[in-house]
Design a protein around this nucleic acid. Structure first.
Lengths: 252, 252
DNA sequence: TTAATAGTGTCTATGAGACAATATTGG
DNA sequence: CCAATATTGTCTCATAGACACTATTAA
């Protein structure tokens, strides 16, 4: 309460990234193989310390996004703070975790110096068979949960898509992130009825067979009204199959 | 990417608190008068630096909650990270903001050494007439927005109430935080129908006049199902404070 | 009795989910 | 033609919101 001679302790600040994307019909997260000291050889989230005293935290996250994943212009938001004492054996390191959403990409990581990076299904990354550095398993889980929740009441789903997309592509996003099946016909009307969610972008043919679909792009609205409730609307379709890994490959 | 001689920069970590409560029919935030150096004389959120190298961030928040507000056992959650370079003239200070929800209290702050603390309506605190230190205006706004959103789909509203409460007390929470009027009859059924939200705690008389109300306590469920949608359901009634004012009284 | 608040019943418009039907492509 | 996907239409059920009505207290 008065002026006192006491000095507050300093900490190291890191920006870590949960980068999510769709590959096939499954949600994937980008992981890197650690080559150095703590947890060497384990998988970890891309990230790193602030470059210098004056770097903004989000700027550091974007820099790591570019350096370690070769990504730019993707959705990025703060996920949370992870600063438990002892989470890093090197000392007091506080990580500001970020959630990034990337559209489907041509090749696993490619491009920059991120040769040691790889996409892994979140389901696998969170299974006990994978060793993740630090508290990164919890951070990934929190990131996935954030994405699931925000899909309901924001237009986040469009961040998983390219500049233009079909409604069924958008539906695949919801199905992959939520891990359930939706009725294409009700989904179609629901999305169309959510004002400002998506706007038309000209018709075009797309997939191998079937009637060509209209193209859309992300609309101006962030808050979905009404929201995309994730309750029952499951479609029976092919067996309940409960999250089995085998069923993804659907080569028409 | 190799081992390098570079040293990452260190930062100071602070835990700040947005403490919300209801006083009368309005949402209030706890503010303290700064007595020292930067922004001396301005109003600020309670908070402070980590005590030492090994203090957990949330522990620091709870300590400040006790020291500066005399509060314990209240709802507390992480709100966000505010670390923009230059936000604090003393150097690189990163604040981890927390949101705390307190039930109605007998006296403004009372108790501990928090004599310089006071409750202020959030509406006033965010008006241009009040000088707030650092970026605390934004942090308060973010805290209020978080509370508004979480009232919809979580049982957070019960954190504003005491151990037991009536349904109309709970309604006052929603009305104050959302800044709208609700129909008591529909609210009653809605709350009762949200499984696990509230549980009975014996009948009892309460306010001055009118039929005595049943008492309830917070139920076991955190995620509200169905949620408490904040859309139209406004009741004409008497004009609340501002807004409609003129159009109201529509007797039968 | 009246005033005031607590609690119940009921109607209606809206929207979600089920699912038939139609449209448009490739083969 | 058939297979596959896109898009539209329609039906039913649940629920949000409006609001009449009953219940229970103090004065």
């Amino acid at each position: 309460m008065h002026a006192d001679p006491w000095e507050p302790p300093a900490v190291l600040l890191a920006a870590d990234l949960v980068i999510l994307t769709l590959r096939g019909a499954r949600l994937h997260v980008l992981l890197v193989h650690r080559g150095i000291d703590p947890y060497q050889g384990a998988l970890a989230l891309p990230g790193g310390f602030l470059r210098d005293e004056h770097e903004d935290i989000e700027a550091a996250a974007r820099r790591e996004l570019s350096e370690e994943a070769g990504l730019a212009d993707v959705h990025l938001e703060t996920l949370g703070v992870y600063g438990e004492p002892g989470r890093d054996p090197r000392g007091r390191v506080v990580s500001v975790a970020h959630l990034a959403i990337a559209p489907r990409l041509p090749e696993p990581t490619a491009g920059t110096d991120a040769a040691d990076a790889c996409w892994m299904p979140v389901e696998d990354a969170l299974s006990s068979g994978v060793e993740l550095a630090f508290d990164h398993a919890r951070i990934i889980a929190d990131g996935v949960e954030r994405a699931r929740t925000k899909l309901e009441y924001t237009a986040l789903a469009t961040a998983f898509c390219g500049e233009t997309f079909t409604i069924s592509e958008l539906q695949q996003v919801y199905e992959a992130v939520w891990g359930i099946r939706l009725d294409p016909r009700n989904f179609y009307r629901k999305v169309q009825g959510s004002r400002g969610f998506i706007v038309a972008a000209g018709p075009m043919r797309r997939t191998a067979n079937g009637r060509p679909a209209r193209l859309f792009r992300a609309g101006p609205v962030q808050a979905l009204n009404p929201p995309m409730v994730r309750s029952a609307h499951v479609t029976p379709q092919d067996g309940p199959a409960a999250q089995t890994a085998a069923e993804g490959v659907r080569q028409s």
